[in-house]
């Protein structure tokens, strides 16, 4: 049984305008996404800026109120539960953000930050909590001596470690990692990625791993989902996706990766045009529309629900892109 099952999730934001500041349209940030995630599994999520990755992540950990669809976590339907009812589940459902500086309170010491999850959940005595904090720091490779320092006194990589320590404090089952290494120096990125891999092995964590860098996503994931304009267009085992991409958008993304090897320079089939806006998205296959594909019109009247084309390899069945 899977740990997380998301069905046909929609997350719309009102777009306000006019003198009355009324909702005049909606931004369909996540528009009918279905995914599942097993125990100790990592699902990678890639796509261009604005395609809805962060929104999907936030909806799953219920930092947002989904517009429609359902989210089942660990056997419970959490789509509409209130914050209060969510609390006991919250400890199993965590999120790490791109910019650790923004998500760590600058006026709190490392000790305050790491003790907080225990205090919120009302567990442990003062002494116990202190011991746990020392253990957590050790787990993420920081020394106990940093406990009374403030976030700004650390480097980006160290701050991300503190963010990870906080996320794993209550032994969660699932962590949504939203671009956890994008803000880090290259030489520090691999330290943090290794830490995430170690913690997964040790604690049996599941990750939804969001990133721009496709090589990073591939390295971290068992399966990868490719998102375009609020929808998943392809989902497959990591290696399979990179070796046999089926959707034109996946191919374009793979093609654009700058490979760190000058002997592998290539002529690219460059994607033209910019990422379209999720406000009033086109009907049918959105990528076919962007590419002005002659067969796009056919896709408008089609059911574009993902279909399994090889074991575990799902793709949008549209006439223009697959």
């Amino acid at each position: 049984m899977s740990l997380l099952t998301v069905k046909n999730l929609q997350q719309y934001f009102p777009v306000r305008g006019g003198v009355l500041h009324r909702a005049v349209a909606s931004c369909k940030a996540v528009d009918g996404v279905s995914i599942s995630l097993g125990e100790s599994e990592t699902l990678g999520l890639v796509g261009e800026s604005g395609c809805g990755k962060t929104t999907l992540g936030k909806a799953i950990v219920r930092l947002l109120k989904p517009t429609s669809g359902s989210i089942e976590f660990d056997g419970h339907d959490i789509t509409r539960v209130s914050t209060g009812a969510l609390r006991p589940m919250r400890r199993h459902l965590q999120m790490i953000f791109q910019d650790p500086a923004e998500s760590l309170n600058p006026r709190h010491t490392v000790r305050d930050i790491l003790e907080e999850p225990f205090i919120v959940q009302k567990i442990g005595t003062k002494d116990e909590r202190r011991q746990w904090v020392v253990k957590l720091l050790d787990k993420v490779g920081l020394s106990a001596s940093v406990m009374d320092r403030f976030p700004f006194e650390f480097s980006g990589g160290q701050r991300q470690r503190i963010g990870i320590a906080r996320a794993i404090a209550l032994k969660p089952k699932l962590i949504v990692c939203d671009e956890p290494v994008s803000a880090l120096d290259v030489s520090v990125q691999s330290q943090v990625l290794n830490l995430l891999l170690d913690l997964q092995r040790e604690m049996g964590l599941s990750y939804l791993f969001i990133a721009h860098g496709l090589n990073v996503v591939k390295h971290m994931s068992d399966r990868v989902a490719v998102m375009y304009l609020g929808k998943i267009v392809e989902l497959a085992p990591a290696v399979d996706l990179y070796q046999n991409p089926r959707h034109a958008y996946t191919k374009a993304l793979l093609d654009a990766i700058p490979i760190a090897d000058p002997t592998q320079r290539r002529e690219r089939q460059l994607l033209r045009g910019d990422v379209p806006s999720p406000i009033n998205p086109p009907a049918g296959c959105a990528f076919g529309h962007r590419m002005k594909h002659p067969k796009w019109k056919e896709s408008v009247s089609m059911d574009l629900t993902l279909q399994e084309v090889a074991p575990g390899h799902w793709v949008q069945p549209c006439p223009c892109c697959t």
Partner: peptide
């Protein structure tokens, strides 16, 4: 050398340990 070794490659096996440079810039 450390920089070149630490970037994940497309042909690497997923979820294996990456080489890392210790410490910070």
């Amino acid at each position: 050398q450390g920089l070149l070794e630490s970037i994940p490659r497309l042909d690497s096996t997923p979820k294996t340990k990456l080489k890392a440079i210790q410490g910070n810039v």
